[in-house]
């Protein structure tokens, strides 16, 4: 990444932080319903990986902590916020909600709420890519706890067996809902669990976006080069609870303080300032612009957008006017 790229990524990560913090407020104001899983603390993961990949070209799939993955793939943040507000202008037309964002035009293939569910879907997309002969790759972002589902093992086996172009990114934030990894998982280093499938795997600091980027370049090159799957584990931390209904009481305060000193935005910001590529004033201006955009463009768009019409309750259940339902166009 050159200096301009780093500044852009810093801005994107700061935008992601402010966007999620605003979601928190909107949830407290009851503008957003249901479950809400926020991303602060983990920003370097998706940004570092997708800088090494091709957003909008490669197929990305993830779990329910999906707002920033959608935005990084190219989804309009206004459409994300409108979706959280349940509006027709949302990226899933208000039918999906926080856990089910989709932007297929930008090849963000969705957020899914069953832990581990996306593993086989990513392998299937990779199978389709290979059949069609494209140079895209499938990228599956999931948390460490998903690796305790059977789909993890079943899917890794098939991805390796058929040598498919899929990159598994494990954002290891140390907790599966409210249970610490060493209380749920016999082997804490997730990359070690992959060796049984003959898939190359690496572990990297998930708080330093430049390190994530460097590790992801190796991973993406491997996969895009037709060498089969790759597994990248990123060590990270989420600042908030699992979801908004989580009081976060299970985590030691000292642990939280330790991780807050390794904030991905601060790490990159301070590095750029130290290198003379950014001033604190520039950074503050950047932050003000972001806050202004969220408050004066994104939130009003979500608030003022129409709700989906009740008459369309049953739309999108099945295909519309599919001729084969009647046995073809006779």
């Amino acid at each position: 990444m050159n200096s301009a790229d780093k500044k852009r990524v810093l801005r994107e990560m700061l935008f992601a932080r402010r966007f999620e913090e605003r979601c928190y407020e909107a949830y407290v104001e009851r503008k957003i319903g249901g479950f809400l899983h926020l991303y602060p603390g983990q920003e370097a993961c998706v940004h570092g990986v997708m800088e090494a990949a091709r957003p909008g070209h490669d197929y990305v799939i993830t779990g329910y902590r999906d707002h920033i993955h959608a935005i990084k793939c190219g989804c309009d943040p206004k459409a994300v916020m409108a979706e959280l507000f349940g509006k027709e202008t949302g990226c899933s037309k208000g039918r999906g909600g926080s856990m089910h964002l989709f932007d297929v035009a930008h090849r963000f293939m969705g957020g899914y709420a069953l832990v581990g569910g996306p593993f086989p879907l990513a392998v299937g997309m990779a199978k389709a890519i290979k059949m069609k002969g494209g140079d895209e790759i499938a990228i599956c972002f999931l948390g460490d706890a998903a690796n305790n589902q059977g789909t993890f093992h079943e899917s890794l086996n098939m991805a390796a067996l058929w040598k498919l172009p899929v990159l598994f990114v494990c954002e290891n934030n140390l907790y599966g809902i409210g249970t610490r990894i060493d209380r749920s998982t016999a082997v804490v280093d997730q990359y070690k669990r992959v060796c049984g499938y003959g898939i190359p795997a690496a572990q990297e600091d998930g708080q330093d976006v430049e390190k994530v980027y460097a590790a992801a370049r190796v991973a993406v090159e491997h996969v895009r080069g037709g060498n089969g799957p790759y597994f990248l584990e990123l060590l990270t931390y989420r600042y908030r609870g699992h979801s908004m209904s989580d009081s976060n009481a299970y985590r030691p305060k000292e642990e939280e303080r330790m991780w807050s000193r390794r904030d991905p935005i601060i790490i990159l910001r301070d590095r750029l300032i130290e290198a003379g590529e950014l001033t604190m004033d520039e950074y503050k201006r950047m932050d003000d612009e972001i806050l202004h955009e969220i408050e004066h463009e994104i939130i009003p768009f979500a608030e003022q957008s129409p709700e989906p019409p009740v008459e369309e309750l049953e739309r999108y259940v099945l295909a519309e006017n599919d001729p084969w339902v009647r046995g073809g166009a006779r």
């Binding site: 197929y59 799939i61 293939m109 569910g117 593993f119 086989p120 879907l121 990513a122 392998v123 299937g124 997309m125 990779a126 199978k127 389709a128 890519i129 059949m131 069609k132 499938a138 059977g150 789909t151 079943e154 899917s155 086996n157 098939m158 067996l161």
Partner: peptide, 18 residues
């Protein structure tokens, strides 16, 4: 392989792309 849930999921994922 004998992995019903995941090979069904693989088919579904492939169907996303046509």
């Amino acid at each position: 392989p004998i992995s019903e849930n995941s090979f069904t999921g693989v088919g579904i994922g492939a169907s996303f792309l046509g």
